[in-house]
Design a protein around this nucleic acid. Sequence first.
DNA 1: TTCATTTTTGCAAAAATTTGCAAAAAAATA
DNA 2: TATTTTTTTGCAAATTTTTGCAAAAATGAA
Lengths: 132, 132
Amino acid sequence: MYEKIIKEKGLSLTKKRVDILRTLDINKKPLMIDDIKKKVKTKMDTSTIYRSLKVLVDSGLVYQTDFREGVSYFEFHGENGHHHHIICTTCKKRESIDICMDKAFPSLEKKTGYKITNHIFEIFGLCKTCLK
Amino acid sequence: MYEKIIKEKGLSLTKKRVDILRTLDINKKPLMIDDIKKKVKTKMDTSTIYRSLKVLVDSGLVYQTDFREGVSYFEFHGENGHHHHIICTTCKKRESIDICMDKAFPSLEKKTGYKITNHIFEIFGLCKTCLK
DNA sequence: TTCATTTTTGCAAAAATTTGCAAAAAAATA
DNA sequence: TATTTTTTTGCAAATTTTTGCAAAAATGAA
Ligand SMILES: [Mn+2]
Ligand SMILES: [Mn+2]
Ligand SMILES: [Zn+2]
Ligand SMILES: [Zn+2]
């Protein structure tokens, strides 16, 4: 399962990477490094988690995002496609949103010559409650 | 000038904030904390730069972005509107792009109840050279 | 301007993230 | 499978970013 996903991206298959990917998938929400370290089955050094995630993010398997809380969050975006978030800069509340401009990517690839692998898109503002 | 811009956002006006904003504006490209610390006219503690930028970013005056180089970059997006980037994950080269979906924000504000102040959008991939 | 109140800044310490290097694991070759 | 080569991992150290607190600066009301 996760083995297949990792191999298909041309990455070397390691137990740690499988473990991290499965952890993100099962939890169905953005996790930070400490969360991952606790939830993972294998004992794993923090630097290994950072380095493994870098590979998974660059390949497009994992979405890395910055909610401006001082730590990075990571989320598995599987079969059902990816999504982005809207975050309140005051109370830090966040919701998923379903808008994205990935439809424009093919023409952008043509224009720039890049092969696009992933992107980050997050919206910040004030939520209904904090506006009052 | 920068005084006016800062006041209009309802932020308190300090010499450091003006200094940082002017530095970003003059340089016309993303700067990292160390760049800013060197280029700024006033001697300024690093933590002050971080904290000042946080305020400027949340207000929407400054664009904070992550090129995945291990440091944050900051760029002033003034009158002429903002822009985003496409970054090569291999050689770290980056270019400005002119696509954005901020036209969709009014309906998103209506749907979510948020007052949107800013957003981050960055595209990653492999450049023409690194694809070979 | 003066005084009281709120916000920002500098400094030191803490926390998050990255990096160099040798050992371990995975991939490639035979 | 056995051997060789390449990549990943753990550990320690370095770098980047955040935070608590007291002093300084900015704001707002006399
Ligand atoms: Mn999400
Ligand atoms: Mn730019
Ligand atoms: Zn809020
Ligand atoms: Zn490249």
